[in-house]
Amino acid sequence: MEEAVIELDELRKTFVVRRRAGRLKRTRHEVHAVESISFTVPRGEMVGYIGPNGAGKSTTIKMLTGILTPSGGRVRVAGLDPSRERTALAQRIGVVFGQRTTLWWDLPLRDSYQLMRRMYRIEEPRFRKNLDRCVDLLDLGALLDVPVRQLSLGQRMRGDIAAALLHDPEVLYLDEPTIGLDVISKAKVREFLHDLNAERGTTVLLTTHDLTDIEQLCKRVMVIDHGRLVYDGDLGGLHAIGESERTLVVDFERELPPVSVDGARTVRTEGPRQWLAFPAGASAAPVVTALAERYPLVDLSVREPDIEDVIARMYAGA
């Protein structure tokens, strides 16, 4: 068996929250943010960690990075106990929080990177090489002297990813790395991550709301809901269980009655536009070919299923 970089064994996290009940009285509630999650990730794997909001994704990541202390169970990252050996672990992992930057808000990227170099004690040649590579692939050249607060979300995200990789971490955690980014930035980030994993063998754990991220990057996907792991396998399997469907949105030249082609069914029509559903595991190509042969097409696009939908269907199917 391959060496496991991330190991979780019945990991739990329980929060105590006090809620107002009446004017002065407060009641104590226990919230089980993470309930007994176990999994391992072998070195060099790129894993998607998905689930609806509040499912426990961020809580898990915070325990894996040592930010939060677990309530129970065991966790090891690169052989270390994240909570106890947090500063030692910090040398070996990289973290990118999609919503907030880990860079110094008022400083230009260049200064932030220099500070990172000295904080993480990265030797000059290695730092140069890593920075040049990130600047090149993430297109940061023009941004290096701009204070972080003046960067757009997509630029800042690229800056953050570079910052997380300067010290060659063994494990990279990405929390919603493509949230709020435009199409071009998304593509750039995905391509970069793909190359990083392929060339350096960096283990990547990625949370996202965008199934396209998973589809293009991860062979393995884990689904968490209500603090429990409900699926661990490949994306195709997830679609199969959830019987999830992709949707082909087709604009015809004129209004038509609902069309019929093999392998797809029309679920909605609106003027000359129709929505055709087909299994997420199948290719869109035969459906498109069949349509093009028989009907006058103007435009078409494919919509991926939502994570929320997929999970909802999993429950409906189970």
Binding site: I67, T87, A90, I93, V95, F97, Q99, R100, T102, Y120
Partner: peptide, 10 residues
């Protein structure tokens, strides 16, 4: 939430 960023540095 920027406190978290400080906790993942060495």
């Amino acid at each position: 939430g920027t406190m978290d960023a400080l906790l993942v540095r060495p």
